[in-house]
């Protein structure tokens, strides 16, 4: 490894570029300078804290602490999925649908990768588990958020069609099938596009990071391929689970469309 260590001054130079961008925003009356600076500040604080936490966990390596961090990441991702819904499920379901789906998909795919493919020792080794899980959660989160949002929006807009089918004796499953299929498709398109463009249009973040850290390019490629495939599978399984659970939740035990289980539309 021949990693060039960054000094606070190096980061400060990068930060001045963002400050310059904020000044341009101010000059052009874009009105986003405040948001930009806060987001940049959050990046600095959140990533520094993560660095400190990981440094601590590298030393401790206690399974309980590692699982606590993993659960924290899961809950934050679950909250993000909920926050991105224009019509979220009311009550615990608003948080539960996305969180449960991510738990099922991201955790199982990550554990499979660690135990069967990478075979890290121990499998919960912080160096592998946390970055892998982070990438899985980050991408799965986007896919699930898009798919769930699409599902609830269309169920609301097309309630007349759904109920017309129910009236004619169709089951809940038949009545929402097209909407569910389209929702799932919308959740999967971003990762399909990302895979199609990988290496040609964009140099993926993880590969970039490994190359910067001095890893041989072919090794970095292999890791990136692995991650992209895992992310695609995780997003697909997660979005499928979320859309399935969400669609089921839109109907009660007498197969009535229950849009009252969705909250009010948010801007």
């Amino acid at each position: 490894m021949n990693l060039i260590l960054l000094t606070p001054l190096d980061l400060a130079i990068a930060a001045t570029l963002v400050v310059a961008l904020a000044l341009i925003s101010l000059r052009l009356s874009l009105g986003i300078e405040g948001k930009l600076l806060i987001a940049a500040l959050r990046t600095v604080i959140q990533l520094s804290l993560l660095g400190l936490v990981l440094k601590f966990l590298f030393v401790q390596s206690h399974p309980l602490l590692i699982s606590a961090l993993a659960m924290f990441m899961l809950f934050v991702a679950g909250y993000e999925v909920m926050a991105r819904q224009q019509r979220r499920f009311s009550g615990i379901w608003g948080f539960g649908v996305g969180t449960l789906s991510m738990f099922i998909s991201s955790f199982s795919v990550t554990i499979l990768a660690l135990t069967v493919i990478i075979q890290a020792e121990p499998w919960y080794s912080v160096q592998y588990l946390i970055p892998l899980l982070g990438m899985m959660l980050g991408n799965t989160m986007s896919g699930i958020a898009i798919a769930l949002d699409n599902l609830t929006q269309h169920a609301w807009q097309r309630r007349q069609e759904i109920e017309a089918r129910l009236i004619l004796g169709h089951t809940w499953d038949q009545s929402i099938r097209e909407i569910r299929r389209n929702a799932l498709r919308s959740g999967l398109i971003p990762i399909i596009n990302a895979m199609a463009a990988a290496g040609i249009v964009s140099l993926p973040g993880m590969m970039t990071g490994q190359i910067l850290a001095g890893a041989p390019p072919m090794e970095a490629s292999k890791y990136q391929i692995l991650i992209m495939l895992l992310i695609a599978a995780g997003t697909g399984f997660g979005a499928t689970a979320a859309v399935w659970i969400g669609a089921k939740r839109l109907f009660d035990d007498r197969e009535r469309l229950r849009l009252d289980r969705l909250g009010k539309k948010r801007a």
């Binding site: 097309r158 109920e163 017309a164 129910l166 009236i167 004619l168 004796g169 089951t171 197969e255």
Partner: peptide, 19 residues
């Protein structure tokens, strides 16, 4: 079952749905 009931007790709403 709910689908059986709705097939037998047919409802015609003022605004019809088509999919």
């Amino acid at each position: 079952s709910a689908p059986q009931w709705r097939s037998k007790v047919g409802l015609l709403l003022a605004e019809s749905g088509w999919w």
